[in-house]
Structures are given as structure tokens and as C-alpha cells.
Amino acid sequence: MDYKAVIKEIRDKKYRPVYFLHGEEPYFIDAISKVIAEEVLDESERDFNQTVVYGKDCDPYQIVSLAKQFPMMSDRQVVIIREAQDIRNWDAFESYFASPQPSTLLVICHKYKKFDSRKKAFKALGKENVTFLSEKVRDYQLTSWITKYVQEIGYGITDKAASLLAEFLGNNLGKIINELDKLSILLEKGTKINDVHIEENIGISKDYNVFELVNAIGELNILKANKIIQYFEQNPKAANIVVIIPNLFTFFQRLMMIHFLANKSPDNVAMNLKVPNFVAKEQIRYSKLFPPKKIAQNISFLREYDLKSKGLGAGNTSQGELLKELVYLLTH
């Protein structure tokens, strides 16, 4: 069951005794627990029937005792354990998970890592409870996830705008959704969000960003690449060499993969590289400018400058100067 299905079930008032939410991606866990906290009980019922505790501070046996209690002047009570990854003694929950109190919704928010499914407590969770694994949206899935999310809230988005958000904000769904929610306040429903909207309202330059720097290098456009680097020097928050180098590594890794694909059609390249079709077309074009031997050399340069960006062998060279050196080496 994905997080939307869990939320739909809650809103349909099909409640479960235990919601065990665990995994690397905090956004989905927060989304489910927020719906439970705000919609299961009326405001008048929450004072006596909704309890929030934190894993670091809670005594598991006391939580089990609380969960076993009956609600006061309500059909149910809600007990939410936030930061449950800090709990050390899970044995205390084993018997409760096997036979939970039907009038209690016990919500366990175990963030940033998968719970050990070998533990007896986890095995005690039956089918009547929800065990939800919140997995990270992988980097190659991010632009399509953004596109789908935007469509769900009643907007459209161009491929370039989705890529800009993914490149600039990284794999942080909370940040991405926060920025998209801001746009939804400013733009009319049905608007197709483009790179100009992103630049004007979120502050990501449509011309001076990591995405455009990679493209400039792919096109062997040294002048454009150096203009972007100069912009980064003047606007340090726009990009950092520690972020830029992994993007360039991914770029050249993809070009190398294209060289060894028998079928170099855009559809096949998009499928193998797990990128949107428009990105695949660009990558095919760039691959013709970089033979495999040069790509291997560039990957070696990137490893060298990754170390320099972290202070190994760079002396007092600034990030801007390191980037200019790197761009020259990558394009010659």
C-alpha cells in the first residue's frame, strides 16, 4: 500500500490499531501522521484523547499502557510516537502489536532508516495493522515524481522546470513540495509551470544553474560554462562545487553508457538511462562530442577535483578557480 492509499483509507474512516511507518524518506511518514493527527479526532476530542511523545523521551512500557487505555468521551484515542528510531527497547511492544487495543490508533514514526524486520516486535504486527515502508524517491525518478505531483495538485510543469527543481533542491521531497506549494498560491490552477516561474518565484536562475553548466560542458561551450561559474562565484548559494562534481560524474557516466548501447534510439536510451526523453536526446547529441577515451579521462579528472574540492591538494585555490580549471580539462 502506498502512502496515498493509506491516507485514503484513513479519510474513509477505515482505521487500523497500529500504523508502523518506517523508512528513509521522512516526507511520506509525515504526510500520513499529519492526516491522522488532524483528521481522526475532532478538535474537542484531542485534549483528552490525543497524545504525542518522542522516542528519545518515552518509556515503551508506559506507551503500551497508555495505548491499552480506553478513550474518554470518544470512540477512539490517538497515540503518536515521533522520532521512534530513538527507541531502544522494542520488546515491550511485541505483545501489544499481536493484540492491540481496537479503540486506539498507535502511530509509530520511525524515520530515516528501515526498521529491522527480523525483530520479534515487527513480526508480531498482523494484517490488521499497517506496516508502511517509506522509500526514497531515487534521483532518476525525481523529475517524473515532481511532474506527477504537480499534476495531482492541478497544475502542469515543463520538463526543464521539473529538472531545475530536481537539480537545485536535490532529493528532498519536503523542500520540493514546500516550493511547489508556494507556487500554487501565486499561480492560477491549470497553469503550466515553466523555468521563468521557477526563476521569478523560487529564485533558481533558469540560465545560471548546475543543469545549464552541465549542458554547456556537453556542448563544449567554454564561454557559457565560465559565465555560469562566474555567476556561482558572485552568488555562492546558487551552487557548490561539491554538488556540481557529482552531477558532472553522472553526466559522463551516462555518455559512456550510450556508447555501449547497441540501440541508440531516444526511447531506448531514455529507458536504459532512466531519464526523460528530452534528456536522452540531449545526451545522445553530447555523446557524439565525447569519445569513450575522453570520457574515461574526464571521470579521472572529476575524481581528482572532487578530492581538491574537499581540501586535498588544492592549496588556497578558490572554488571558482577549481571549477574553471576543471571545465578546461573536461572540454580539451
Rank of each mutant, 00 (worst) to 15 (best):
V242S: 06
I229W: 06
N209F: 14
E199W: 00
E188L: 04
V196A: 10
N221M: 03
E233D: 13
I198L: 00
K224E: 12
A225P: 13
I202C: 04
K206R: 15
K206H: 09
E233Q: 11
N221S: 15
E212D: 13
S205I: 01
F211Q: 15
K237T: 09
H197M: 07
L223C: 06
I222K: 12
Q234K: 11
G190W: 07
I217R: 10
I222T: 15
P236E: 02
G218N: 11
I222E: 12
N221K: 14
N209D: 14
I204D: 00
I241Q: 00
I202W: 00
A238D: 03
A239H: 00
K192P: 04
I202H: 06
K182M: 11
T191W: 03
L187Q: 10
K224W: 08
G203Q: 03
G218L: 07
L183C: 07
I229L: 15
I193V: 05
G190C: 02
E219M: 12
Y231M: 01
F211H: 15
N209Q: 13
E219K: 15
E199L: 02
G218A: 14
L223E: 15
K224H: 10
L187I: 06
Q230I: 08
S184R: 14
N235Q: 02
L186H: 02
V210T: 13
G203V: 03
A216D: 09
A239F: 03
I185K: 14
E233H: 05
E212P: 01
Y231D: 03
A216Q: 11
D195E: 15
L213S: 01
H197I: 07
N226V: 08
N221C: 08
V210D: 07
A225Q: 09
K192H: 13
